[in-house]
Amino acid sequence: MFSRFTTTALGGAAVLALSACASGPTMAPFSQADLPAAVQVPAGHRVAFETAAAGDITYQCQAKKNMAGQYEWVFMSPDAGLKGRKGERLGKYYGPPATWDFNDGSKVSGAQLAVAPNGSGNIPLQLVRANPAMGSGMAQGVSHIQRVATKGGVAPAAPCDASTMGSKRVVTYTADYIFWKPA
């Protein structure tokens, strides 16, 4: 499922997810015009391909650093499947480090450049700078990766305290990952 962004009059730029299924009409090319500036890919790049991710994020209850007696859920790792526009399985996403591993034998990892909020209950939108790809295939030449259209994935609401320290919780999420190459 892929989403597009439109601006609404409700408090600024809200995200409206529009979806297409495998048998649906061809979608317009991705536009980042309605994304916050922090997560926009710099000029001089073009969309190489898009994926839809659905999976899990694991969090662990840990003591807060330098805050005796306080605890928090800490992001540990993502694990998601990646599908293409027509619903075909393209690969998987996991970490750390953040890695997109494709069925054609190529993979790319990256480092976060920026995030922007995407509403309550959703992990933030994200811009990643890609490391050089490994293997030949669709990941070759990717320079940036955007995470957009996020749903879910935030730290659990379950208690995190001394009695639950070390425990793990898994939450589900979906997002679109847009892969960019220099134009």
Rank of each mutant, 00 (worst) to 15 (best):
G44W: 10
A80S: 15
V142I: 15
S19W: 05
S163Q: 12
P156E: 10
S3G: 15
G24C: 07
M76Y: 01
P78M: 00
Q146F: 04
T26C: 14
W100G: 02
T58C: 00
G11C: 05
M1C: 13
G87H: 03
E88K: 06
P117V: 06
P36E: 12
Y59I: 03
P156Q: 14
H144G: 06
T26L: 15
V108G: 00
A53Q: 01
G87K: 07
P29D: 15
T174I: 11
M138N: 07
T6D: 09
T6H: 04
G166K: 06
A63D: 13
G152Q: 01
V108P: 03
A175L: 03
A155K: 10
F30Q: 06
G110P: 08
V15A: 13
G55H: 00
G135A: 03
S163P: 10
F5L: 12
D101Y: 08
P124H: 13
Q140T: 15
F102P: 02
Y94K: 08
G105T: 04
S19V: 07
F75M: 01
V115P: 02
G69F: 00
T172C: 04
L127R: 03
G44L: 10
R85H: 01
G105D: 05
A48Y: 04
L10F: 14
A20P: 03
T150E: 08
A48I: 08
Q70M: 07
M76T: 14
T150K: 05
S143I: 08
T164H: 09
G137K: 00
N131S: 13
S3V: 12
S31D: 15
G135K: 02
C61V: 00
M1D: 15
K92V: 02
P182V: 11
A116D: 09
G110D: 05
E72R: 07
A28H: 10
V108N: 06
V128R: 01
